[in-house]
Computed example of a mutant assay.
Amino acid sequence: MTIESILGAIVIGAVIGAIGRLLLPGKQAIGWILTIVVGIVAALVGTLLAQVLGVETTPGIDWIELVMQVVLAIVGVGLVAGLRRGRRV
């Protein structure tokens, strides 16, 4: 892994996490750092899932893969927010 790929994963993860957080209704009790971490994980898992399912890669933006990543980010942000809310009693 090069420094460019690591920085790229952080940037893409931040964008995916932010989109997932914005699309999730209600207020989420997690910070932006945790949102970025969830976005990075969602981006990586979404890419792996797209490869396993055989989603065609095209030049440019792979929309199906992007939708998978955003859906995973929404689920991830919701799960983490729910777990953190349950801890603050």
Rank of each mutant, 00 (worst) to 15 (best):
V45E: 07
A18C: 10
R85W: 03
E4G: 07
L44C: 12
A73I: 03
E56L: 08
M1K: 11
T47F: 09
A73M: 04
G86V: 01
V38D: 00
M68A: 10
L83P: 04
A29K: 12
I30D: 01
A9G: 12
Q28E: 07
P25D: 09
L22I: 13
R84T: 14
R87A: 14
T57H: 13
I10H: 02
I64H: 02
R21A: 13
G76E: 05
G39I: 04
A42W: 00
M1T: 09
S5M: 09
I30V: 14
K27G: 10
I64R: 08
V70A: 04
G54I: 05
L22V: 12
G17E: 03
L48I: 15
I30K: 00
P59N: 11
G78Q: 06
L49G: 12
A50R: 02
R85P: 02
G76L: 07
G17C: 06
L66Q: 05
Q51H: 11
L7T: 12
V52A: 15
W32G: 15
V89I: 10
M68V: 07
E4D: 13
G76D: 04
V55A: 03
K27L: 08
S5N: 11
I74A: 10
L44P: 00
V37K: 00
L22K: 15
I61A: 14
V75C: 05
L66H: 03
V70P: 01
P25A: 07
W63H: 10
L24R: 15
R87D: 07
I74Y: 05
G60D: 09
I64F: 08
V55S: 05
A29S: 12
I64C: 03
L24M: 13
V70C: 05
L79W: 13
A81D: 14
G17R: 02
V80P: 05
G46H: 04
L79Q: 12
T58C: 05
V55W: 01
G8P: 02
I12W: 09
G39K: 01
T35N: 03
G46N: 03
I36Q: 07
R21C: 08
A81E: 04
L72Q: 07
I40W: 01
L83H: 10
E4K: 11
V75L: 09
V37H: 00
G78I: 07
A81T: 13
T2E: 15
G13P: 01
G17I: 00
G76K: 04
L44N: 11
V41L: 12
T35L: 03
G39R: 04
V89W: 11
V11I: 15
V15C: 13
V77H: 00
E56N: 11
I40F: 08
G86P: 00
A50M: 02
L83F: 13
G46W: 02
